[in-house]
Simulated assay, not measured.
Amino acid sequence: MRVTQSDPAGAPASAPARLLTPADVRRLADRLGVRPTKTLGQNFVTDAGTVRRIVRVAGVGPDDVVLEVGPGLGSLTLALLPHAHRVTAVEIDPRLAAALPGTVAEHAPGLAGRLEVVTADAMRITELPGPPPTALVANLPYNVAVPVVLHLLELLPSLERGLVMVQAEVADRLAARPGGRTYGVPSAKAAWYADVRRAGSVGRNVFWPAPNVDSGLVELRRRPAPSASASRAEVFAVIDAAFAQRRKTLRAALAGWAGSPAAAESLLRAAGVDPAMRGEALDIAAFARIAEQKR
């Protein structure tokens, strides 16, 4: 992990930032020799209205330390800086990470002191420099969005809320409620940490290059864990088992986890759950009650 700090001087709350235009995005990419890759999920936002909307919906304020994952060329970073106390930007591509402070200095010179850039894979970080982040605001690469969100919520209990832009299908899965086909492992595990809801849609034409799918905004609001006795790992083991064969009843699906179908039925009944139900019918509180019975 490499950290780049901008000029530590503070910035006035009203300091302006000139947001990137589509021409700016292409100019910066050409200058850096960057060609967006599917491997890193690089689709750069070119629309100023979209990044302003994200910041507005996220409710970023002057006391917030914002964690941004995958800042890319800096479109969202520049929109965040005038509103936040500080932005910690985690970027896996060393070329983009090295260039970001210069882009901020060019487009928002009075705000450079609010930015800290960390060159690292967000899935592998174990700590962050500076004050603990209070909000996650990011345009996340589609292929790693769910594991990144879950990793950061677990790693950083200081995160009070988040607003992430992800593939529309992923947004639906994260925000799904029990009872539907969209509800599954991502929905249940995200619910361990936060209340999750869909916060809007984003068309594909605001990106360069334009992806083949639309995007969605997902809002997360931290809340207490639903169990005081079962650990996250214990509850997640139940969730994984329940959805590994989601067409099976819980009595059958949890047989391996519990030791046998009969043991699974006993634990389910003790938790107040019908053994004939399927995992998609249970909310996070029910999964937690099941895990508690095995302790």
Score class of each variant (00 low, 15 high):
residue 285 A to N: 03
residue 47 D to H: 13
residue 246 R to C: 11
residue 210 A to P: 07
residue 55 V to M: 03
residue 202 V to P: 01
residue 108 A to G: 08
residue 133 P to D: 06
residue 51 V to G: 07
residue 255 A to R: 12
residue 16 P to F: 12
residue 191 A to P: 09
residue 254 L to C: 10
residue 98 A to K: 11
residue 135 A to H: 15
residue 65 V to P: 01
residue 138 A to P: 01
residue 238 V to H: 04
residue 71 P to F: 11
residue 188 A to M: 08
residue 60 V to A: 05
residue 67 L to T: 11
residue 28 L to N: 13
residue 295 R to T: 13
residue 72 G to E: 02
residue 76 L to K: 09
residue 1 M to S: 14
residue 134 T to K: 04
residue 212 N to R: 15
residue 4 T to Y: 09
residue 243 F to C: 09
residue 52 R to W: 06
residue 149 V to P: 03
residue 36 P to Y: 12
residue 148 V to C: 10
residue 288 A to T: 04
residue 292 E to P: 00
residue 45 V to N: 03
residue 207 F to L: 06
residue 49 G to H: 11
residue 12 P to Q: 12
residue 11 A to V: 13
residue 94 P to I: 10
residue 186 P to N: 10
residue 105 A to P: 00
residue 234 E to R: 14
residue 200 G to I: 07
residue 212 N to K: 15
residue 268 L to N: 02
residue 260 S to N: 08
residue 208 W to S: 12
residue 8 P to R: 12
residue 253 A to R: 09
residue 201 S to T: 15
residue 292 E to L: 11
residue 229 S to N: 00
residue 55 V to P: 01
residue 237 A to Q: 06
residue 2 R to S: 14
residue 19 L to S: 04
residue 130 G to V: 12
residue 262 A to V: 14
residue 171 A to Y: 05
residue 175 A to Y: 07
residue 272 G to W: 08
residue 226 P to Y: 08
residue 219 E to G: 01
residue 161 R to T: 13
residue 234 E to M: 02
residue 125 I to S: 06
residue 242 A to C: 03
residue 49 G to D: 11
residue 153 L to K: 02
residue 8 P to I: 14
residue 285 A to L: 06
residue 268 L to H: 06
residue 84 A to F: 04
residue 60 V to I: 15
residue 283 D to N: 14
residue 35 R to D: 05
residue 180 G to Q: 04
residue 108 A to M: 06
residue 146 V to N: 04
residue 285 A to H: 14
residue 44 F to D: 05
residue 155 L to Q: 04
residue 280 E to S: 14
residue 224 P to E: 01
residue 5 Q to N: 11
residue 138 A to C: 07
residue 149 V to S: 03
residue 3 V to F: 06
residue 267 L to G: 15
residue 289 R to P: 00
residue 154 E to P: 00
residue 200 G to A: 07
residue 162 G to D: 01
residue 165 M to A: 05
residue 113 G to V: 10
residue 101 P to M: 08
residue 91 E to P: 05
residue 246 R to Y: 09
residue 286 A to D: 12
residue 83 H to D: 01
residue 209 P to A: 08
residue 1 M to C: 05
residue 140 L to E: 04
residue 237 A to M: 03
residue 125 I to P: 06
residue 230 A to I: 03
residue 141 P to H: 13
residue 88 T to H: 01
residue 257 W to Y: 14
residue 25 V to D: 02
residue 241 A to R: 09
residue 106 E to M: 01
residue 268 L to S: 05
residue 219 E to R: 14
residue 63 D to M: 04
residue 222 R to M: 10
residue 78 L to R: 03
residue 72 G to D: 02
residue 195 D to Y: 03
residue 36 P to F: 12
residue 188 A to D: 05
residue 49 G to P: 05
residue 119 T to F: 00
residue 235 V to N: 03
residue 46 T to S: 12
residue 115 L to T: 09
residue 225 A to C: 02
residue 290 I to G: 06
residue 221 R to S: 10
residue 268 L to E: 01
residue 7 D to P: 00
residue 198 R to H: 15
residue 231 S to W: 06
residue 149 V to M: 08
residue 137 V to S: 08
residue 266 S to V: 13
residue 265 E to T: 14
residue 197 R to G: 09
residue 122 A to V: 11
residue 136 L to V: 13
residue 112 A to K: 01
residue 266 S to I: 08
residue 56 R to T: 15
residue 24 D to G: 06
residue 88 T to S: 02
residue 41 G to W: 07
residue 263 A to R: 15
residue 227 S to K: 07
residue 108 A to D: 01
residue 117 V to R: 07
residue 113 G to P: 02
residue 286 A to H: 10
residue 165 M to H: 03
residue 18 R to I: 11
residue 272 G to H: 09
